[in-house]
Design a protein around this nucleic acid. Structure first.
Length: 886
RNA sequence: GGGCGGUUAGCUCAGCGGUAGAGCAUCGGUCUUACAAACCGGGGGUCACUGGUUCGAGCCCAGUACCGCCCACCA
């Protein structure tokens, strides 16, 4: 017999099997069945694995392994995202440490440097995913900036330009003065911050008084080109058209009527700064107002702000403007105020709304079919509630700012001629040709990262080329992602997928849980609250980490995960213990199987034994339940069901009930059959567990009699209705209850495990009698009793502990061991429980409406249970009173 | 300002119409020939609050309170 270590040692096993799988090509597609495709959310090249990723990709791997075992032609495409701003920021930070800026290097050199960084550090996460056990097709790994991907982005840009879905325009956009680029609306975060509300007097030119405006940003007044009040506002009706003198600047500006001014706010008059506020910008367009930029891209005041302020930082300027106004008694009051402040999602800098020329995608037209696709059920969100989230966003969508003033990314394929014509082309040669000899220069900007990642599900399959992969594997089956990128990414994949392929990019969108720390806050590396998955894998194994996460992955519910105590991660420890349990149960089976057992010998030999019929029925129910739960993305249910089946049913009962047969030293046919059955149940369980715990299950499976090269490509168990056996389940329930009661008596009476007791049972029920007869050896073993006698009913005797379960009377003679006080207490407690339950049932049964309105089945059940209880109570009372006689 | 989640045993969470479950922790016992990372047994919950629907409600409806997310151009 081969030596098997007492505890599962993940490290060696993981390495061994991952390279085994890889070298056998199991990660590649190839099943006989229909296709099943997933393209993973490409992690940022700058990233390293955190717990959220571990969850995300574990879910991917579970689904992919499961479908592969079911025989689907299964493909999971991995890859990485070039992550424009994020990556550029990281590289710039490195440069800063060296004392240089990207401008010192110049564009070419900077890009070289960034590629160098990407080649060196990027892909760290890929290696980490492999450690996790992910069975993705690494040969198909893609990068959103690789050669073919560039073609996809060009194709998209050119076609949208030709369809007039892309335009350039001057707009007030969100500008990050630190990243020095425009960012889209969704890349802005809002945070309430304490601030001041300044009430400023704007004098009327004719000297007849002033109008008070309120603002949180006094420095922008230098760019005011009007003051607006609501047309319905009685206070201003007579003044519309009047001219005001803008303080400090001395410019003359009109008082205009526009209903975006809210009469109830402050004085009802609002300053209008078209260059630095989106509302004001739009009001400016309505009234043909001039636009004056007083703040530049780095957050400093421009020349247009006046010589006194030019060059000042926007906050310094604010202080100075307020001082100057105060000096002229033009500040009416300053109040404390809370303002929703816009911040750059990348770096946290306060956003500056800035008037600038940018490229936009016209969204209305693109959104329409993407809305219909979801409404029509062609894309299904799981959990369903996110459908609403998506639709609300899409139905109120605004045009998308796609140009970024960065260097790292897809350069915008637009060239400008000297006379200002835009030429959109796939490359410079084509642009030159189109320019017909006019000199041209390429637009400096790059595209928003999401402009490229929105093409992911089809670009990774080869689009815009009509490749075999695209033909075969698109659309994909499911997208598994986090909820915070529903707008940024999911929505955009849907509308671009439909636009370019006339088909939705995926059937389902599964939004997985957010992993939180013990405070219920989002885990974040930067806040130091992150846990390194590799550390956990090192300590407990990849399977344990996967299981710990998956068992908590209820659809869409957040997971709180950093319960660490004395350097131990309790949640993973629990999963590791389960892995070890599986290991040891397998060890038991293997130790008894003997050498050279063939697959056929380890098969299910039909049996009339209760335990056999029962475990087969339970196994079958488990297969059914687990498969169903997988179909519904209820991964926690999958994990919990398997945990319960394996530990409670298989280990605690089936193995124990089969032990004497299985370990029998004689090599009888009966014993061999029993060994075959136990191996069969184990092998089937391993296949069910494999998607969750790939390494452990492979390690054991390879040692068991099996067919095929790897559990990875073994078949997924199918439920078999003929194996349902209600009778076996009921009888087993009785047997378990009986054994538990005897153990209970032992424990409460402090009977040492070593002392063999006798057991008297009383029942008139013939089926209960035969249940006891047929399983008397098991009862003796598991309840640790020597002799069992069965009679019609038991009469009270002295020195015995009594109980009753499912109508079977139990008596354990204790001779001198009994403690009457304890026994009285124990029976009293039992009696109390039963009386309580009986009372509740009686109350329901007495209720006319219950008997009339509740389903007959429920009433019937209640009545039966009630009658059973009454009989049991009766007998316990007799016992109790006989104790009282002592 | 709108929308969405959550509130169940000391902790982390399942359960979502038939009268409460798991793991950990805790208490007592056990080296019972796979496993002390284990085994056996016990204790512990007015299922946030208030109303309502129902024969029956953690479970459905309405509202309240805290906690957490998302969206929003309120100067």
């Amino acid at each position: 017999m081969t030596e098997i270590p007492k505890a599962y040692e993940p490290r060696e096993s993981e390495q061994k099997w991952y390279s085994f799988w890889s070298s056998h090509g199991y990660f590649k597609p190839g099943g006989e069945g229909p296709k099943y495709t997933i393209t993973i959310p490409p992690p940022n090249v700058t990233g390293s694995l955190h717990i959220g990723h571990a969850l995300c990709y574990s879910i991917h791997d579970v689904l992919v392994r499961w479908k592969r075992m079911q025989g689907f032609d299964t493909l999971c495409v991995p890859g990485m995202d070039h992550a424009g701003i994020a990556t550029q920021n990281v590289v710039e930070k490195q440069l800063r440490k060296e004392g240089v800026s990207r401008h010192d290097l110049g564009r070419e050199k900077f890009l070289e440097r960034t590629w160098q960084f990407v080649n060196e550090y990027g892909g760290v996460i890929i290696g980490q995913l492999q450690k996790l056990g992910c069975s993705f097709d690494w040969d198909r790994t893609r990068f959103t900036l690789d050669e073919g991907y560039v073609d996809a982005v060009l194709e998209c840009f050119v076609r949208w330009w030709e369809e007039d879905l892309i335009y350039k325009g001057a707009r007030v956009i969100n500008w990050c003065p630190r990243c020095l680029t425009a960012i889209s609306d969704i890349e802005v975060e809002h945070e309430d911050r304490p601030a001041k509300l300044y009430h400023i007097r704007y004098p009327l030119k004719d000297g007849s008084g002033y109008v008070v405006v309120a603002t949180t940003r006094p420095e922008t007044m230098l760019g005011d080109t009007a003051v607006a009040a609501n047309p319905e506002d009685e206070r201003y009706k007579a003044l519309f058209g009047a001219v005001l003198t803008l303080p400090l600047a001395g410019r003359e500006i009109p008082l205009i009527a526009d209903d975006y001014a809210r009469p109830e706010f402050g004085s009802g008059a609002v300053k209008v700064t078209p260059s630095h506020d989106l509302n004001d910008f739009e009001a400016g367009l309505r009234h043909n107002l001039p636009q004056i930029n007083v703040i530049d891209g780095s957050g400093r005041m421009t020349e247009a702000a006046g010589a006194r302020y030019a060059g000042l930082d926007r906050y310094e300027a604010r202080t100075k403007v307020v001082e100057d106004l105060q000096a002229q008694s033009l500040i009416e009051k300053i109040e404390d105020y809370t303002v929703p402040t816009a911040l750059c999602a990348r770096c946290g800098t306060v956003i500056e709304p800035l008037l600038s020329e940018q490229w936009f995608v016209r969204m209305k037209e693109l959104a329409k079919p993407a809305i219909d696709a979801v409404k029509g059920g062609r894309v299904k969100f799981v959990p369903e509630r996110y459908e609403r989230t998506y639709l609300d966003w899409m139905e109120n969508i605004r045009d998308w700012t796609i140009s970024r003033q960065l260097w790292w990314g897809h350069r915008i394929p637009v060239w400008v001629t000297e006379d200002g014509d835009y030429i959109v082309a796939r490359d410079e040669a084509e642009a030159l040709e189109k320019a017909k000899g006019r000199p041209i220069t390429q637009d400096e900007d790059v595209l928003d990262t999401w402009f490229s990642s929105m093409l992911w599900p089809f670009a990774v399959l080869g689009w815009p080329k009509q490749t075999e992969d695209l033909e075969k594997y698109y659309p994909t089956s499911v997208l598994i992602t986090a909820r915070d990128i529903i707008y940024l990414w999911v929505s955009r994949m849907i509308f671009s997928g439909i636009y370019f392929n006339q088909e939705v990019p995926f059937d389902d969108v599964y939004i997985y849980a957010t992993v939180l720390d013990e405070q219920g806050k989002r885990m974040s590396k930067s806040l130091g609250t992150g846990i390194d998955p590799l550390e956990i894998i090192d300590l407990y194994g990849a399977d344990a980490l996967r299981f710990a996460l998956l068992v908590r992955a209820a659809r869409g519910q957040d997971i709180r995960f950093s319960y660490v105590e004395n350097g131990r991660q309790k949640q993973v420890e629990e999963a590791r213990n389960f892995a070890n349990k599986i290991w040891n149960a397998s060890r038991f089976v293997l130790m008894n199987l003997g050498e050279g057992v063939s697959k056929t010998e380890a098969n299910w030999v039909p049996s009339d034994r209760l335990a056999d019929r029962w475990i087969l029925a339970e196994l079958n129910a488990t297969i059914d339940q687990v498969t169903r739960a997988l179909e519904e993305y209820k991964l926690n249910e999958v994990a919990q069901t398997l945990y319960h089946f394996f530990w409670d049913d298989f280990c605690d009962w089936y193995i124990e009930l089969s032990k004497s047969l299985v370990t029998s030293p004689e090599d009888t046919e009966e014993a061999r059959a029993a060994r075959g059955r136990i191996a069969y149940v184990l092998e089937t369980s391993l296949r069910l567990l494999h998607p969750l715990m790939p390494y452990l299950t492979e390690e054991i499976w390879q040692r068991l009699p099996h067919e095929g090269e790897s559990i990875m490509v073994a078949s997924w168990p199918a439920p078999d209705e003929s194996q349902n056996d209600e009778q076996a389940r009921e009888q087993m329930q009785t047997l378990i209850a009986l054994i538990t009661k005897v153990r209970n008596i032992r424990s409460e009476m402090n009977i040492p495990a070593s002392s063999r007791l006798s057991l008297h049972l009383g029942t008139q029920d013939t089926s209960a009698r035969s249940l006891i007869d047929e399983n008397s050896d098991q009862i003796k073993r598991l309840a640790r009793v020597g002799e069992i006698t069965v009679s019609d009913r038991l009469s009270a005797r002295k020195g015995e502990a009594r109980d009753i379960v499912y109508g079977i009377e139990i008596s354990v003679p204790l001779e001198g061991l009994i403690d009457i006080g304890k026994e009285r207490e124990r029976i009293g407690k039992e009696l109390g429980k039963k009386e309580n339950e009986a009372r509740g049932l009686a109350a329901r049964l007495d209720n006319d409406s219950f008997r009339e309105r509740a389903p007959q089945e429920v009433v019937q059940q209640a009545r039966q249970r009630h009658d059973e209880l009454i009989a049991e109570i009766e007998k316990l009372r007799v016992t109790l009173s006989s104790l009282g006689d002592e």
